[in-house]
């Protein structure tokens, strides 16, 4: 065999081994969540989604208030965060020379890496302390702030990916600027935009730190109003994993699986968007 062939084989083997080494921990985490979480959920039965969490060494109960809280928080923060991000991104792409638009671009990228606990402390200082209470309102605002830089960046990239010729074509047909933006640009980039929205939604589903000092952790009641205390699955896992009790650990594993399934569903939906080819 030629030296070059040997080199190539060694290189190939190395790449395969390193790729496996890189993916293995992720799979290990995923499989342990599925394995241990499934065990807990099978044992608890359907009441795992309908019951309140247990006391130490007293069965498994369920995670209903935390599950409801997580879903409600994600929806509420999306209601606020997604449209704001959408408009911010369109503004930034449409008026690239405007100093404010430049600020939006720089800020949205800079805030991507902001430690999420800082967002929690910010909302704690400007909303929770003045209001004198933790609340769903504070929690959903913290999550909206978390999500805006992500969605803005994704939408910006999606819009920038639309070839300039389409815009020219739109103007050539005599369309107004708003029609060009909302019908042609957004229309062509809609898959990228939807993916960005879903990623933002998934991002806030799993957040813990912004909720530590904003939400109030009511683990026994389903939250509805803006001033209610709420809980999230991530906070439940955080607290229960630190207790010494085996049944509370099991609940945490089951809750982790529920959260993972929610991620998977969102992932599958976003895959569907990116695969579909219209036009």
């Amino acid at each position: 065999m030629d030296v070059r062939e040997v080199k190539e084989r060694i290189f190939l083997a190395l790449v395969v081994i390193l790729s496996i080494a890189a993916v293995l921990p992720v799979f290990h985490v995923f499989l342990s969540v599925v394995w241990k979480g499934l065990g807990a959920i099978m044992e608890a039965g359907p009441s795992f989604l309908l019951d309140v969490p247990p006391a130490p060494n007293a069965g498994l109960g369920g995670i209903a208030p935390s599950l409801a809280g997580t879903l409600l928080l994600a929806v509420l923060s999306s209601l606020l965060g997604i449209p704001l991000s959408l408009f911010a991104a369109i503004f930034a792409v449409e008026f690239p020379d405007n100093p404010l638009a430049k600020g939006v671009r720089v800020l949205s990228k800079a805030l991507l890496e902001i430690p999420s606990v800082v967002v929690g402390m910010l909302v704690y200082a400007i909303l929770v302390v003045p209001m004198g209470r933790f609340s769903m309102l504070a929690g959903s605002l913290a999550l909206a702030i978390m999500m805006i830089p992500y969605v803005t960046t994704y939408v910006e990239q999606a819009l920038e990916g639309v070839p300039f010729t389409y815009r020219e074509a739109g103007f050539a047909l005599g369309l107004s600027r708003s029609k060009v933006v909302f019908e042609i640009m957004v229309g062509i980039a809609r898959r990228g935009i939807l993916t960005g929205m879903l990623i933002g939604f998934a991002k806030v589903l799993g957040e813990t730190a912004p909720l530590l000092f904003t939400l109030g952790r009511d683990r026994y009641n389903v939250p509805l109003g803006p001033l209610d205390y709420g809980d999230s699955i991530s906070l439940l896992i955080f607290d229960y994993a630190q207790t010494p009790y085996a049944n509370m650990h099991q609940v945490a594993w089951g809750a982790a699986l529920v959260l993972t399934v929610m991620f998977l569903i969102i992932f599958l939906i976003s895959r569907k968007f990116t695969e579909e080819v219209f036009l």
């Binding site: 999306s78 209601l79 997604i82 449209p83 959408l86 408009f87 708003s178 909302f182």
Partner: peptide, 14 residues
Amino acid sequence: RISAPLLASMGPLI
């Protein structure tokens, strides 16, 4: 598509 901006504004309104 025509009502996209309107639709988006609904979120903060709700």
